[in-house]
Design a protein around this nucleic acid. Sequence first.
DNA 1: TTTT
DNA 2: TTTT
Lengths: 166, 166, 166, 166
Amino acid sequence: MMAGSVNKVILIGHLGADPEIRRTQDGRPIANLRVATSETWRDKVTGDRKERTEWHSVVIFVEGLAKVAEQYLKKGSAVYLEGQLQTRKWQDQSGQDRYTTEVVLNGFHCNLTLLGSPGGGNRPPPAGSPEDYGRESSRTPSGGATGPSFSSDLDDDIPFAPEWRG
Amino acid sequence: MMAGSVNKVILIGHLGADPEIRRTQDGRPIANLRVATSETWRDKVTGDRKERTEWHSVVIFVEGLAKVAEQYLKKGSAVYLEGQLQTRKWQDQSGQDRYTTEVVLNGFHCNLTLLGSPGGGNRPPPAGSPEDYGRESSRTPSGGATGPSFSSDLDDDIPFAPEWRG
Amino acid sequence: MMAGSVNKVILIGHLGADPEIRRTQDGRPIANLRVATSETWRDKVTGDRKERTEWHSVVIFVEGLAKVAEQYLKKGSAVYLEGQLQTRKWQDQSGQDRYTTEVVLNGFHCNLTLLGSPGGGNRPPPAGSPEDYGRESSRTPSGGATGPSFSSDLDDDIPFAPEWRG
Amino acid sequence: MMAGSVNKVILIGHLGADPEIRRTQDGRPIANLRVATSETWRDKVTGDRKERTEWHSVVIFVEGLAKVAEQYLKKGSAVYLEGQLQTRKWQDQSGQDRYTTEVVLNGFHCNLTLLGSPGGGNRPPPAGSPEDYGRESSRTPSGGATGPSFSSDLDDDIPFAPEWRG
DNA sequence: TTTT
DNA sequence: TTTT
């Protein structure tokens, strides 16, 4: 491409069912979610209230985020997520080409955040645990100062060491 | 929804073909775009460079943005766009249910911005015209924009009145 | 700009205090929020859990959204919001130039969504009312079909009539 | 926070000056950018065309992205970037507290993409090089990316394995 | 199939 | 201080 490209999806919605977990041959989880987003409006002519719900298929390949999904999400959970659009081609029983578009969380530029579950209150992953679930543990918080009082030693307590990115 | 929901797609990519323009019965344009995004990476094992291109179907219902697409976009144009995910159900010739997922620009929370065209240099819509193409004309950098009447704002020409923010 | 520009901020966080409401001369509300976002990580060396909280100043000029803030937000409320970055210049008592950067919700491309309040359960604006609060009332839901079975009459029940955008 | 929080800034704009590069004690670059975004509108009363430009201070701590900035960005370059808002406190000469808000690229959820430079055509980083500049090299379009070890993925070169998604 |  |  002439210039870098961007492919980003941001959703806030609720799960229509418990996550489905699959596993790779070496046991890492992959989570599939069905997420509903909805919007309401009032018909300008009749004044009736209307609602439209959109259903999204979400696939989480990032191991740490798939584990969070497995452990903390359930039917009805509210989530914030960032991923990218991907369309897969497959063949139906009659051999015809079919296409399915999914929101994929994979590699960088992905995110999954719990916004609460029905019944379960708004309980996030218990303190001490999310960092044990892979990538999210490594979220770097800040880089400190860059202005007048700029000071060095950026990696003192910064999760993503350079070797990570090298 | 327990809490409001969000359904947002952000793409930067290039058009794979000229926009297709359809029209409503009363003549307003609806633009369909095919937009490619791509990412490259290096195979960790072989070290080979790899690329994956994703194609997105985009439908622009916002009149002003569809006119911009009609007039300024062509095969190869680079665009930034914001819309939402929608999946439509339809029947194929054999009567089977089929689903197509598109990025839809409709209502608020949408955006379309030209990032340059091949050959045509990086020429944006000519000065003086974009505002004539519908919604974008109505962008009120401050105040305003609260309802159909749109009229009369104190601060039409005082975009960001500091006295309000103390 | 050679190419259109984009200036977008997306926050999910909690209010550190009740909204402050100011009013324009003609009585329209402007809401100021203090929103906290936080992130946690584990120190790679010591293993200690760390947290960093960022505070954001948010100003809502969109009348409908300011009314929602006034009526439904309070200290502790969780919100999703989309706005843009703006830096204001002002003079302190000694006459020196000072700068303040805020997240401004103004014109198009803004959004404010409640994600729940403490104590108050996760009660959103009561049914029937949000549409009475200005711009959000006009959120258009969808545009219908564009593919194989494309059918006309897009405006039948679509809030944003063309006159709105023209 | 009750629920995870999000702090995201997305900008498309132009550099007002060449990047400023600082270095940590161990030689890693940190890039500071001044990025302009602008918007135009027509005064609803006078019909005059108006423009407002916003200037953003951007700090890039991610080593690979800072190197890209150092090598490929210059005054006038157009960029897409994703980072987060951070406000630093510092003391001026008179000892007074001052605050500066910046867009920080640090850790995950960051991005920097070139959209073209004046004169320089729309030339992106030369093929073969971007992967040599740190983090971006590590983008794993699928699987992978779960921790510092990074090693051995079944699917290193099968970016989007369909058999996993049924 | 969620949520309000 | 960019860009158009």
